[in-house]
């Protein structure tokens, strides 16, 4: 088949998330295609060392069931909740296994230049990233800025997890049938964009303040250090080393404060006012 899936099930695919190899077997061809589409931007990455296996069953019309490594079971009556839970586990696995610096942040790119928006859950990172993708930036991650121990940015293009409200900001004309309070997984292609596959250099860090007046102001690079440290997932292993990595990130990038209320307006402002070097 053109999408790489066999004509008869169960359907199996593998992806690599930040060095963790994920193998998933699904008994439903529609869901298998959807998951493979959503994880498609992760498949070009080199194979990781660890393999985690998932099985998803639900094609018989009863509950949807998710098993991990043949063990733990998650059961739900809706496919959307299963997908949300599946991606939540994948996210936890990928970030737990990543040996470099992982900071809670949205990341987009133009060419080889990457912009990070560090922030806590619920701050609007995914919406801002989705708006930037819709405005023409390439997608890197809506979840984490990942820097390996050599200081290189590692893309983490998991599917964007958007609430219904976020989807309406980015695609106001889209009809969402039977919206649920949980989040929807969408790929950058679903937003009319694409994931970045270039080697990336983090050139800008933007501290976004949702609710502030629309404006973009340059700030000293050192001011992003406390925020990057505060938002790092894994600094407790070696805090001093993490501080040095974060300081290197701050040293090598320009820092900005962004005030906004409408994510699409903010994306337009970033596109217009953030300078990008032609060399990156």
């Amino acid at each position: 088949m053109a999408d790489g899936l066999a004509s008869s099930g169960p359907w199996e695919f593998e992806v690599d998330l930040l060095g963790t190899r994920i193998r998933t077997r699904v008994d439903d061809p529609v869901l298998a295609r959807r998951l493979q589409h959503l994880l498609g931007d992760s498949q070009a990455l080199p194979a990781g060392r660890d393999v985690e296996s998932f099985e998803i069953a639900g094609a018989d019309g009863s509950d949807w069931i998710l098993r991990r490594n043949g063990g733990g079971i998650f059961r739900t009556d809706t496919r959307q909740r299963l997908v949300e839970h599946y991606f939540s586990i994948l996210n936890e696995l990928a970030l737990d296994n990543f040996s470099g610096l992982a900071v809670h942040a949205g990341v987009v790119a133009q060419g080889r230049c990457a912009i990070a928006f560090p922030g806590p859950s619920g701050a609007g990172k995914s919406t801002l990233v989705a708006a930037c993708v819709a405005a023409g930036f390439d997608y890197v991650s809506d979840e984490a800025l990942c820097i390996n121990l050599s200081g290189d940015l590692v893309p983490y293009p998991r599917p964007l997890m958007l609430s219904e409200a976020s989807r309406r900001v980015v695609r106001p004309t889209e009809v969402i049938p039977n919206p649920l309070p949980s989040k929807h997984a969408v790929s950058p292609a679903d937003l009319g964009g694409r994931a970045s596959h270039s080697p990336l250099q983090l050139t800008h860090v933007i501290l976004a303040d949702r609710g502030g007046a629309l404006g973009l102001e340059a700030i000293p690079s050192s001011q992003v250090i406390p925020e990057l440290l505060e938002r790092s997932f894994n600094r407790h292993g070696d805090p001093a080393a993490t501080f040095n990595l974060v300081a290197n990130v701050a040293r090598d990038c320009r820092a900005w404060h962004l005030g906004y209320t409408n994510a699409m307006e903010a994306a337009g402002l970033i596109r217009r006012d953030v300078p990008f070097q032609t060399t990156c």
Partner: peptide, 22 residues
Amino acid sequence: AVAREIDGNFTIYDKENDSVMV
């Protein structure tokens, strides 16, 4: 205390208290 100078200004990380001062 671990200090890093960026653009002429120091940021200090305090290992004892896990805090940062710019």
